[in-house]
Simulated scan of single mutants.
Amino acid sequence: MDKLLISNFAASLFALLNPLGVLPIFIGYSAGEKRNVQRWLALFVALTALAILLVFFFAGSSLLKFFGISLDSFRIAGGILLLIIGIGIVNGDSSKAAKNVAAEDQNSDFRAAQLVYRKIVIPLAIPLLVGPGVIANVVLYASEAEAKKDDALFAGLIGTIIVICFLVFVIFLSGRWLQKVVGDVGLNIITRILGLLVAAIGVQFMITGLSNIIVGTLVPEILKVR
């Protein structure tokens, strides 16, 4: 088993998921909820991220090929979605949706968390946590394990995904503590700043995707014509 490969995968996966960067946005969506509801939400989002990562780990390249979707096309689509979401966060729309949904059911923390989760699974789980970069990273390392035909390495990479998603869950659980430290005004400022960054990330995704398509597809075609 290649321990260096696994450690590199763990470091890159955690950096690309960036749960610390997504945490203020999670807090913005769940700030008005009870602690138990926030715990359920953190669990739901972490499990969703885990499920998506495992799906792309086992069938990522085949899935994209089946639908005829290139990674750059996926990156552009994710960038457009992030841009729209980032604008909404800057305008203060992120927490309102969660609070309105939670008001539908005050009797069950689990049920309230389900209702909020339906509204925030996008963008939190995908594409903020599991974006094109994360998917590309997972597909790349899965292909590496397949090429080496190392079952221990394959299992180690799966275990790494599970551990990292557990860390995401733990980090999101700390959201209540952060909310107490910075206060409502500070949280509002942080959330809007992060909204601006989310929009900028979306624009960067689109630029990267378009650049790769132009350089990798259009330029060779133009040179052929000449």
Rank of each mutant, 00 (worst) to 15 (best):
M1G: 15
K3P: 01
L5F: 00
I6K: 10
F9C: 07
A10P: 01
A11M: 09
L13N: 03
L13F: 10
L16F: 12
L17I: 08
V22D: 07
L23K: 13
I27S: 02
G28W: 12
G32S: 12
E33W: 01
R35W: 05
R35M: 05
N36A: 15
N36M: 15
N36G: 11
V37L: 10
V37R: 09
Q38S: 05
R39Q: 14
L41P: 06
F44T: 06
T48N: 12
L50I: 02
A51I: 14
A51D: 08
G60Q: 06
S61Y: 01
S61F: 00
S62P: 00
F66R: 07
S70T: 15
S70L: 10
F74Y: 14
A77F: 06
I80F: 09
L82D: 02
L83R: 01
L83D: 01
I84W: 02
I89Y: 12
G92Q: 06
D93A: 12
S94G: 05
A98D: 07
N100Q: 07
S108V: 12
R111Q: 08
R111W: 07
Q114C: 03
I122C: 11
L124R: 01
L124V: 02
P127N: 08
L129K: 00
V130A: 00
G133I: 07
I135C: 06
A136Y: 06
V139M: 15
L140D: 04
S143W: 00
F154H: 13
A155T: 11
I164F: 03
C165K: 02
C165P: 04
I171T: 08
I171K: 04
L173V: 04
L173D: 04
S174W: 01
W177K: 10
G183A: 09
L187W: 01
R192L: 12
I193K: 06
V198F: 02
I201R: 01
V203Y: 11
I207V: 12
T208C: 01
G209V: 09
G209E: 08
N212H: 09
P220N: 11
P220H: 13
E221M: 15
L223G: 01
K224F: 14
